[in-house]
Nucleic acid binder design. Structure first.
Length: 104
DNA sequence: GGTCTGACGGACA
DNA sequence: ATGTCCGCCAGAC
């Protein structure tokens, strides 16, 4: 008898290990100026991992284009300024996701 | 091996 | 709106 069953295959077959981090980096990198993506959009299976990556990486990424699911900015005013400068629409101090959120 | 912690998200009170 | 709880994954001890 196997000591454990194989992971349930799902539609998404998330990558595991360092490859997953690479995928996150790639997705952040691909956010065009003037748009944002949420942590959950970048990695639905592990949004916190996205934060972990952004907080520890030394790569030059458009980190300011990653916001929370409600459009608020985890890093604060500095981040909002950067976004405003790119013309990202705001509403009540948060990003207006209905307009700025990148599809997919 | 185990335990904790992130720039989170969703459910629920 | 505000706060709690739990799940998620990789990395650092």
């Amino acid at each position: 008898m196997p000591r454990r069953l194989p992971d349930t295959p799902d539609v998404d077959t998330p990558t595991r290990g360092p490859a997953r981090v690479e995928r996150i980096v790639a997705r952040v990198r691909s956010i065009p100026e003037g748009f944002v993506r949420t942590y959950g959009d970048i990695d639905p299976g592990a949004p916190r991992l996205v934060g972990h990556v952004l907080a520890t990486t030394d790569l030059d990424l458009p980190w300011h284009r990653v916001v929370r699911a409600d459009g608020s900015a985890p890093v604060g005013r500095r981040q909002l300024d950067l976004l405003r400068r790119e013309g990202v629409p705001m509403r009540a101090g948060r990003v207006d996701l209905s307009v700025a959120r990148l599809p997919g």
